[in-house]
Each structure stands twice: as structure tokens, then as C-alpha cells.
Design a protein around this nucleic acid. Structure first.
Lengths: 340, 340
DNA sequence: TCTGGCACTCGACTGTAGCGAGTGCCAGTC
DNA sequence: GACTGGCACTCGCTACAGTCGAGTGCCAGA
């Protein structure tokens, strides 16, 4: 039941036209705007087949055809090639990203850049703690029974927690604690720390043990177990482009989904190495996003991946262009991180 | 040209009914639902006067009346009193805020809570650095020529910057630098630090001076001059309640405005002590928000103010309820901060 | 296998009519 | 002088009928 080349060409033409005009496309308009070399009637026959196979559909009788999610899928997989970025876009990326002063800055600039270039909603995950290595742990006494622990990761992330100690602790002990945790933990992946943290308690002197126990439980609990992920979002205003036609008239479910960090993480967090993932409409597992598509990829210094980024938009989106932009931005951000 | 008591009562009734039903309210419905003690005809006469004075208007002839921005203003200033919160709401606030582990957590919980209680868009400013005191400055060597400086403020904020030193620096010097900056700066308001930072450079030994100069310029630049404000946002999905009637059919300008930190800061950042500020429609200086109202207030431990928070919604909002909620949440957050 | 032709479908748009909520005004009453 | 009942009028909303046209499916013929 293969589709011959012409039918594929017809599908491609339909997708391209529909994405451009946002209106159902008919057989006549199609032959006028593309060099298909056949008549409208022939195209109609092809369309009938494409419809039967579920690649396109008619919003109503006597209207043109519109691609289905399945149609977009075929288009993305086999009918399109990634557009190279224009020099102007490359320049925009570079201009946008130079001069970032810290990780927050990098992430914010990136997410805005993505939203602006793709004219869609952009999502950027901060470098995941699980994939970060400990660079330094600082203990700052706030009072005799309170400690602020600040963890600095090699990815630039800095996390802090207040630790309520079981009893007062002299300054020298704090120094000892600091030395011990740093000796043991610096340089290790956060995902690998739990046994080491446990060992720290076991190995510490009786004098230090109570404080160390509290400290380690806080470390484990807040930094590893509920692995604190962070996310930045931009471009929600882009959802309103294209009138209310996209997203079947209601932004509600989309906006709701975008407020849930868990959902966002699921969308862009499961990054496989160097692949760009495209989720189209129904393929999406989140019900609220059944009317949307997501293009996402991982990023990180060199070839390692420390986090994900991507964009969300209507299924009717410029896939080749979006994919190209997402990839390019991910690569630039990776390079930027590598410089640290 | 004073309005007598009955006319004010009519205005109050119109506002209340319109907020509740979202539909223009007519004279007949008004006398039915409120005990005004007069006939519809009389109410109509009063309405004519109110309209002449600009407090209400007719969307079109033969429709009921709708309050104008000016009408809401009068209502807020003279016709309403702040509703006490229900016990359920108080409990919700407490339940929501206990168990926050750090400042980020507090702010996120607060903004979600506000959005949920008011069913509107909530905005919370992190404690302003300018109003924070330095609690500790930590210098962490990243390499021989790079230092990460971490500033911990008494409000719980933690900021970090990478400092590129002019040349390699031995570990002992880092220790000296750390001691010097902490001796000088701990306990001072960030707004007051610039002269002190300058003095640090002047007073430091020739050996330390280059490093100290770089360090101090980074401190000044990033922490004080472009005083790094942060903002959290939640509840944008609430903008879609009430169909597209609010905001004259387009969420676009609102969503755009909400993406600009500067705009948000302007909205809620200018907190005067313990007052609740209400901006109604046109009173708003930001063009994109002319169709919206903002209720905001300052918060902080005790009676000091360290930041602002508030909500944004349609001009047709439940002002008494919203004002009460915003105040209550601000007070709870203040108490929470005071505990640290 | 493709093409031109033709009948058919059905949404979009237009114009008309009736309904009803709501108004403004006026004469009458307390 | 303030309030009220009554009445004519306005005008948005809905329903309905009619027309138009884009687009289709199908079929006979090249």
C-alpha cells in the first residue's frame, strides 16, 4: 500500500501551503502554486487516497484538505529536510548570547532568543543537577544552630538550603565539616553522591556526627531525591498568533499545562543524545497538549547532555525551520557552557 | 454635584451585579435583586445621572449599564469595605506556606497560592537586593584566575557571579580577600555598599589590589547598579476565564506585558509601606494593560518592606475579596520571612 | 493512467423579520 | 419636589431563507 512519489509530493505541497496560509487547501490552488505537472482532477484522486490512509482530512465536505497529525509525521520524517539557518539568524544567536554574566542570565537569554526566532513558546531546562558535578560546598553559619549550605555545581548551578542543626556548634567544627564534605564530594556527579554522603556520616568523629547527620540528610533530601529541576519559559504571547484557529479556540489547556513544571520537564527533559525530538499533536502524552507540537533537544558542553530545551506551538508549524533553529540554539548554548 | 446616598447604593449594586454576572445590568433586575425600596423608573433616573457623571456607561442603546473605570474607582474608595477572609482561606494560606525549604520555594508557593485564591494572575517580587543586608560573601576559587563570588543576603537571596581575575592568585590571597570583604560588608544594606566597596580597594595591600579591584567592580556592577530584581509569575491560565469578554477579546497585549520583567516590577515594585495599591484600567501607565486592574502591596518581615506582590485581572474583578486576599498573603509571607 | 466535464454538497455570507430587554420621557400621585 | 406607572422606541440577538462559490466525487473518453 505504498504511496508513490507524486502522492508524497502532493502531501508535501499540502503541508507547506497549509502551514503558510492556515487555510484548507484545494486541488486547484495546489496545481497553481506547485509544479506538479498534472491536472487538478488527478490531484483529487491522490488526495482521496491520502485521505483514506489518514494523512489528510476535510474539515467539512466541500472544503479543502488539511494535514492530520499523521500527515505531519510523514512530512517530518520523510518529506522535509532541515533548513539551514540564514546568516542573519546565526548572527542574532551570537549577538544574543554573548555577554551573559551567569547561568541565570544564559538561560534567560536563551529562552527569549528561542521564543523570538521561532515565534513560539520556548522552554529551557536549567542544567540538571543529576548530571552536574559538585564543584564546591560552602557552609555558612547563620547562627550557632543554623547553617546555610551552598552547593556550586560545575554546570554553574548554585543551590542553597538552610540546615537546622540539632544543637549549637562551634566555628571550628563548621570548618571541619566543610573540609570533610568537600574532600569527599567535590568532583562527583550528584547522582552518585548518596552512598558517599552516607559514608561521611559513618566516618565522622562522634563530636561531629549529629551535625553531619542532619547536614547529610538535608543534602540527600533536597538535592538528590527530589532532584530540584528548574525551568524557564518565554513567548507565551506567541500562542495568540494565528487568531484562535490554532489550539481549537481555547488557550486554556495550553496555559494550564505550561504552568506545571512537571509537565514541562516531561516535554523537554527526556533528552536523548544529540537527537532532535518532534512530538506532533496526539503523539503527546499530556492531554492538554493534544492540539500542540513540541520540538526539543538536549544541550550541554561538548557532546554531553546536561539539560533540554525546545519550543511548543500549533501542529501547524514550520517544522523544518523550527527544528533547525532549536538545534542551532542548543549547539550555541552548549559551546557557551563549554567555555566555563 | 454630589451624589446622594441612593445613587451611591445604585452604583454599588451595579458594580456588584456586574462583577457577579458579567452582564450589563438593567434597572428592573437591579430592584429585584437589591432592597433599594424604589421603583425601576426611579433607578433609571439615578442611572442617567450616574452615566452623565461618568461612573457607568451603556455598551449600546437598549442594553443595561456597565461600570466605567471611574465607577470602579469610586466603588473601591468609598463603597466597599474589605471582606474578611473565610477561615477556609486562612487555613489554605497556612497549609500552603508551611514547609517551604528556601526562598525560591517560599516565593513559588506564594505566587501559586495567590493565583489560586484570587483566580487571577499573580506576581511576586523576590526580596529586593537593594533592601537586603549582606549576611556573608563567599569566594570560591574555580581556577587560579577565576573566582566565584557568592553573596548571601539576610532576606534569603543568594546571588553568584563569576569573576575573571587579572592574573593568577594564590589560595592564601583568596582567604585574605574573603576576610576583608566580609569584615567590611557584612551587615550593611546593599544600597549602602558602593562607598565601602570603593574603600576596600583603596585600603588593600599592593599585592591584593588588582584582584580586589576586579572583584569590587564586579560586585558594584552586577549587584548594585543593575540591581538584579527577580520576579515570579503564576496563574496566566486564569486570564482565559470569562471567555474573551474581559480584555476586549485579545490576550495578546496582556501576555506580552507579563513577559517584561520591567513592566511587572513597575506594577508591583513601587510598594509604599503597608498600603494596598489598586490600579484600575486606564489608571495603569502601561498601555498594554489598560484593560486590566492590578492590586498590589508590599511585604516583608515585621513592618519593613523588602518586596512587592499582587495580582492582575480584568477591571471587572471582585475588588474587596482580592484586596483582602492580597493583604493576607502579604502578611503571612512577611511573618514567614521574619522567622528566619 | 490521466484528464475534462459535470452534478452535487455545504459552509459563508446577506437580508429580513420577530422578539425582548432595556431605555427615556411624560403625566399623574403623594 | 420626589417618586411611580405607563408607553413608545431602540437595537442587539436569533432564526430562517436564499444565494454564491470553492471544492469535491465520479465518469466517460483520450
Amino acid at each position: 500500500m505504498g504511496l508513490d512519489d507524486r502522492k508524497l509530493a502532493v502531501l508535501r505541497a499540502i503541508v507547506e501551503d497549509y502551514v503558510a496560509t492556515q487555510e484548507p487547501v484545494g486541488s486547484k490552488a495546489l496545481v497553481e502554486r506547485h509544479q506538479l505537472g498534472v491536472s487538478p482532477a488527478t490531484v483529487r484522486n491522490d488526495m482521496a487516497v491520502l485521505e483514506e490512509e489518514g494523512y489528510i482530512r476535510q474539515p467539512h465536505t466541500s472544503a479543502g484538505r488539511v494535514p492530520t497529525d499523521r500527515g505531519y509525521r510523514l512530512f517530518v520524517d520523510r518529506l522535509s529536510r532541515v533548513k539551514p539557518l540564514s546568516p542573519a539568524e546565526r548572527r542574532a544567536i551570537e549577538r544574543f548570547l554573548v555577554g551573559a554574566v551567569d547561568l541565570d542570565d544564559v538561560v534567560h537569554r536563551t529562552v527569549r532568543l528561542l521564543a523570538q526566532l521561532t515565534r513560539q513558546v520556548a522552554v529551557v531546562q536549567y542544567p540538571s543537577l543529576a548530571r552536574s558535578k559538585v564543584r564546591h560546598l560552602e557552609l555558612v553559619p547563620i547562627s550557632t544552630t543554623r547553617l546555610m549550605v551552598v552547593m556550586i555545581a560545575d554546570t554553574g548551578r548554585v543551590e542553597q538550603r538552610l540546615v537546622e542543626l540539632p544543637g549549637p556548634i562551634p566555628a571550628d567544627d563548621v570548618t571541619d565539616l566543610r573540609r570533610l564534605v568537600n574532600e569527599k564530594l567535590v568532583g562527583t556527579l550528584l547522582a552518585d553522591t548518596p552512598p558517599l554522603v552516607q559514608a561521611l556520616v559513618d566516618e565522622s568523629s562522634p563530636q561531629l556526627r549529629p551535625a553531619m547527620a542532619t547536614l547529610s540528610s538535608v543534602l540527600l533530601e533536597t538535592l538528590v531525591e527530589r532532584h530540584e529541576e528548574r525551568i524557564a519559559l518565554a513567548g507565551t504571547a506567541n500562542l495568540t498568533r494565528g487568531g484562535l484557529l490554532d489550539f481549537q479556540g481555547s488557550l486554556r489547556p495550553i496555559l494550564e499545562a505550561l504552568e506545571e513544571e512537571v509537565v514541562l520537564l516531561k516535554l523537554i527533559g527526556e533528552a536523548e543524545p544529540s537527537t532532535t525530538r518532534v512530538l506532533i499533536g496526539d503523539e503527546n502524552e499530556i492531554d492538554n497538549l493534544r492540539a500542540a507540537s513540541v520540538v526539543s533537544t538536549g544541550y550541554g558542553p561538548g557532546s554531553t547532555i546536561v539539560g533540554g530545551l525546545g519550543v511548543l506551538g500549533p501542529t501547524r508549524m514550520d517544522y523544518p525551520g523550527t527544528i533547525a533553529t532549536v538545534r542551532a540554539v542548543a549547539r550555541y548554548v552548549g559551546d557557551l557552557l563549554a567555555q566555563n
